[in-house]
């Protein structure tokens, strides 16, 4: 029997005041795999990601993560299980420094209890140097070391996206959901992003689900692509197959004559 997928979405449906954003959408992600989620604007990609990460509760359908049903769990629970996301419009704590943002991401619920704060300060203080070291390593990886004590609010859009990936990585999740990581990012930086995602997968064996309109990005990193259209599954398969699928060309990529 083949290993069961790390994420298994089946029959996902949700509507907003009668607008059916997702209808019976299913897809899966195997461990160590990178899957692209593409489709025209309004096809339900981000809605699907919001359901996966707990920010929306689907009306129907089951989301399994590492074999367990996580449908309808809170975003914090989902994140703590090892399924983490970034946002299309990057979210950060703007009036906290880069290092503070990273420490915030790295610290665990035990460190944050009132009891530990008042009576057990030593425990975290002992771990802090190691977390700081890890935070600085990650800042090095995303090339933001020189800004470690600046407020995150001063970063440019592209730098904010880089930081948001470092914030996810410091918690060492099993699966990372990226919502348009390349949107509004300089082409050179996109190349770096692609290299980074590939390196993270190779070195750490992470799985990714990536929403992206940049087809170069998708074909450079993804093993498989899931195409959504109007809230339904349109097609899925390896990038080169999807690239030539007439249905996908029609609704999303455009026919060769158009291009």
């Amino acid at each position: 029997m083949a290993a069961s997928p790390i994420i298994d979405v089946s029959g996902l449906s949700i509507s907003f005041r009668g607008v059916k954003a997702l209808q019976d959408v299913s897809f899966a992600l195997n461990s160590g795999e990178i899957v692209g989620l593409i489709g025209p604007n309004g096809s339900g990609k981000t809605t699907a990601l919001n359901c996966l990460s707990g920010f929306l509760k689907p009306d129907a359908g089951v989301i399994r993560f590492k074999g367990e049903d996580i449908t309808g769990q809170s975003p914090a629970e989902v994140a703590n299980r090892g399924l983490m996301r970034t946002f299309q419009v990057t979210k950060l704590a703007r009036r906290m420094t880069l290092i503070e943002n990273l420490l915030l991401a790295a610290q665990k619920a035990d460190d944050e209890s009132l009891f530990a704060t008042i009576f057990g300060r030593g425990t975290f203080a002992r771990r802090q140097p190691r977390l700081l070291e890890r935070a600085r390593e990650l800042l090095e990886t995303v090339k933001l070391s020189h800004l470690e004590n600046d407020y995150a609010g001063v970063l440019s859009g592209g730098q904010q996206r880089l930081l948001s990936i470092a914030l996810v990585l410091i918690r060492d999740p099993d699966v990372i959901l990226l919502d348009e990581p390349a949107a509004g990012v300089h082409p050179d930086l996109v190349v770096e992003f692609i290299a980074m995602v590939n390196r993270i997968r190779e070195e750490r064996g992470k799985s990714f689900l990536i929403i992206e309109h940049n087809m170069h990005f998708i074909s450079s990193v993804c093993d498989n692509v899931v195409v959504l259209d109007a809230g339904t599954n349109l097609a899925s398969g390896p990038p080169n197959v999807i690239h030539n699928d007439p249905r996908v060309l029609e609704v999303y990529l455009g026919t060769p004559q158009d291009a």
């Binding site: 983490m84 950060l92 009036r95 915030l104």
Partner: peptide
Amino acid sequence: SPYGRVLKVIREDEDFGQSLGKDV
């Protein structure tokens, strides 16, 4: 303290805090 950082993330962006696993 770590607790104080979570307080600040509530001020800054609750959804961001939640996405990092904080029970806001």
